[in-house]
């Protein structure tokens, strides 16, 4: 029985070896390279690679609702307003800091342009505008287009067309 303490200490030492650092578990996390990896992730997936849950082709335009318009306004203010400005005249903060000025949405060309044209420009970019496919999901692109159409309609609206209850907000 003299050896009991020795066995106990040896057993405890063995058990302690199981106490690894739970704060760093051997699992793969987003934005983390595997341990010991040398190469870095590519910044964008190679051309032709699609996510396995990516739908085929663009979704059809959804029906226009007030919720779609609100979503469009929110997304427009996040992703488009830095250049196109919140009112759509193309004089956003980034343009004021030296970015080439985009055309106003109220120009005759852009009022005539089809919804598909706007969709394609958001997806693939146009001129110095980069693609927004990564940043704006397909349903949100339609929402943004709806909001841009609302901005265009508001440009020449008269006070008489505003519901009486809302008029005091504008005066």
């Amino acid at each position: 029985m003299r050896r009991l303490p020795i066995i106990a200490v040896a057993g405890l030492a063995l058990a302690m070896a199981g106490c690894d650092n739970m704060a760093n578990q051997p699992k793969r996390l987003p934005f983390q390279l595997p341990y010991g990896a040398e190469a870095n992730w590519p910044a964008l997936p190679p051309a032709g690679i699609v996510a396995n849950d990516e739908p085929f082709g663009p979704p059809p335009p959804p029906p226009v609702t007030i919720a779609l318009l609100a979503r469009g306004q929110q997304r427009y203010d996040i992703y488009c307003s830095p250049c196109h400005n919140r009112v759509g005249d193309g004089n956003g903060m980034i343009v004021q800091r030296g970015f080439p000025r985009p055309p106003s949405y109220f120009s005759a060309n852009l009022i005539k342009a089809s919804n598909q044209h706007y969709y394609d420009v958001i997806t693939h970019g146009h001129g110095v505008m980069y693609p927004y496919a990564v940043r704006v999901a397909p349903p949100d692109r339609w929402a943004i287009i709806t909001y841009i159409r609302a901005l265009q309609a508001s440009e020449n609206a008269r006070l008489a067309e505003v519901p009486p209850a809302q008029r005091s907000l504008l005066q």
Partner: peptide
């Protein structure tokens, strides 16, 4: 915030922007 941190509303991580997002402006400025 969401201009760069795109997945903050939908994901566990707020998301770091791809370099494309930086270059959207810094290709000109």
């Amino acid at each position: 915030c969401r201009y760069c941190h795109m997945t903050v509303e939908t994901g566990q991580y707020a998301g770091m922007p791809p370099t494309e997002t930086c270059m959207t402006c810094h290709s000109q400025i």
